[in-house]
Amino acid sequence: MSSFNLRMLLLLALGHLVTDIYQGALSTILPFLKEKLSLSYTMAGAILMTSSITSSVIQPVFGIISDKKGKAFLLPLGAFCAGIGFSLLAWSPSYPIVLCLVLVSGLGVAAYHPEGYKTATFFTGEQKATGMSIFTVGGNLGFALGPILTLLVIQYFGLDWLPVMAIPAVLFVILILSVWRIISDHHEAHAALNRAPAAPVPGARTGLALVIATVVMRSWTQFGLMSYIPFYYIDYLKGNPVHAGTMVSIFLLGGVVGTLSGSPLADKWGHKKVLMLSLGLTSLIFPLIFYADGPALFGVFALLGMTLIASFTVTIVMAQRLLPNNLGVASGLTVGFAIGTGGIGVTILGVIADAYGVPAALKFIGILPVAGFLMSLTVPYPSEKR
Rank of each mutant, 00 (worst) to 15 (best):
L6I: 13
L6G: 09
L6N: 03
R7L: 11
R7F: 13
M8E: 01
M8K: 05
M8I: 10
L9N: 00
L9H: 02
L10S: 11
L12I: 15
L12D: 06
L12H: 11
L12C: 12
L14C: 12
L14W: 11
L14R: 03
G15A: 10
G15D: 07
H16Q: 14
T19K: 00
G24K: 00
L26N: 00
S27T: 15
S27P: 15
S27I: 11
T28R: 15
I29G: 03
L30T: 07
L30A: 07
F32K: 13
L33W: 00
L33V: 03
L33K: 04
L33F: 04
L33T: 04
K34C: 11
K34R: 12
K34Y: 09
E35F: 13
E35V: 08
E35I: 13
K36E: 08
K36C: 11
L37K: 10
L37I: 13
S38R: 05
S38F: 09
L39T: 07
S40L: 10
S40D: 07
Y41T: 07
Y41R: 01
T42C: 05
M43A: 14
A44E: 09
G45N: 14
G45P: 14
A46Q: 15
I47E: 02
I47Q: 00
M49N: 08
M49P: 06
T50P: 10
T50C: 15
T50Y: 03
S52A: 14
S52Y: 05
T54N: 05
S55N: 06
S56F: 15
V57H: 01
I58S: 04
P60F: 09
P60M: 11
V61N: 01
F62H: 07
G63Y: 09
G63D: 05
I64Q: 00
I64P: 00
I65Q: 04
I65S: 06
D67V: 02
K68Y: 15
G70D: 10
G70K: 02
K71M: 14
K71N: 10
A72L: 15
A72W: 02
A72S: 10
F73N: 08
F73P: 08
L75K: 03
P76W: 01
P76K: 01
L77P: 03
G78F: 12
F80C: 10
C81N: 05
C81I: 11
A82L: 08
A82P: 09
I84M: 13
I84W: 09
I84C: 09
G85Y: 07
F86E: 00
F86M: 12
L88P: 11
L89F: 07
A90F: 06
W91Q: 15
S92A: 15
P93H: 02
Y95S: 05
P96S: 04
L99Q: 02
C100D: 03
C100I: 09
C100L: 15
L101Y: 03
L103T: 14
L103C: 12
S105T: 07
S105N: 07
G106A: 04
L107A: 08
L107E: 07
V109D: 09
V109Q: 15
V109L: 12
A110K: 00
A111N: 00
Y112L: 10
Y112A: 05
H113G: 01
H113D: 05
H113F: 10
E115N: 11
G116F: 09
Y117T: 12
K118W: 00
T119W: 00
T119F: 01
T119A: 06
F122Y: 06
F123C: 01
T124N: 07
G125W: 10
G125D: 05
